[in-house]
Amino acid sequence: MTAPRIHGRVVAALMLFAGFALLPLVAWLADDPFLVVIGARILAYGIAALALDLILGFGAMVSFGHAAYLGFGAYAVAILSRFGITDLGLHMAAAVVVSAGFALITGAISLRTRGVYFIMITLAFGQMVYFFFTSLSAFGGDDGTGLRQRSTLLGSSVLEHDLVFFYVTLAVLMALFWLAHRIVGSRFGRVLTGIRENPTRIEAIGFAPRRYQLTAFVISGCMTAIAGVLLANQAEFVSPAFISWHRSGELIFMVVLGGAGTLSGAIAGAVTMIVLEEWLEVFTEHWKLVFGIILVLMVLYSPRGITGIIERLMRGRS
């Protein structure tokens, strides 16, 4: 039965959202305003992971270049702000338009291939974008550039308040989760999931897989770009580091960590990864070493991520 499974995941997501909504209260009680800052970063990455899960978990497309869309989002903020356009909506619109175009072209080429080729081609296109932004000397080249101010919302600079920014980001995440959830349960989503299950069969009942995959690829790229807009605002800084292939790898890690193909799992993966990162950083500057070991062990011993571990525990108990 698939119905209760999906229902359970929505409940999981709602619990996550409730937890997020209470975070500022916890930060206030603990007298640690930094929690809200980290919280906003987690939410932004949650959006990116959610977007990637849509194609990785449901469409079986392992895109290793998704950080490029974070870059389009981040640089949309930096570039438009430089020209005096500071509206958040316009930043998002520009990021989405550019990302849709890029996803359409590179997706069409990448989807001519499968498997390993697809992974490597998306990786290479990601690097192409990386080098493009590295070469923009007007925006700091390699080093990136700080933002003079955060995007404005309806002409007001309320987003300068970390708390407001946090709740706006949470609202965007919830809206995009709802959107992704509807897409997955729609006609389109069923075809997409079917392609993941068995592309040959999908062709043999009359669907041309590539059109659906490409559409999903574009949607996912646009959603990731919105995460990029928020991330730049959160950091008040943009640089090519947003676009490095390591970042793309981390996004994949978040999705798999939470269990691919579950949507709420992707958000949980983002939470886990960033909390882990912040926590390990306290103990050692070489936290990436620990991280790498965790990654290898996870793949070797729990390929289905946290979801797999939880499911195994629950099965053991019942």
Binding site: A3, I183, S186, R187, F188, G189, F207
Partner: peptide, 10 residues
Amino acid sequence: SSFRFFGRVA
């Protein structure tokens, strides 16, 4: 059309 993104197919 299967390019419908919102209605619940189930």
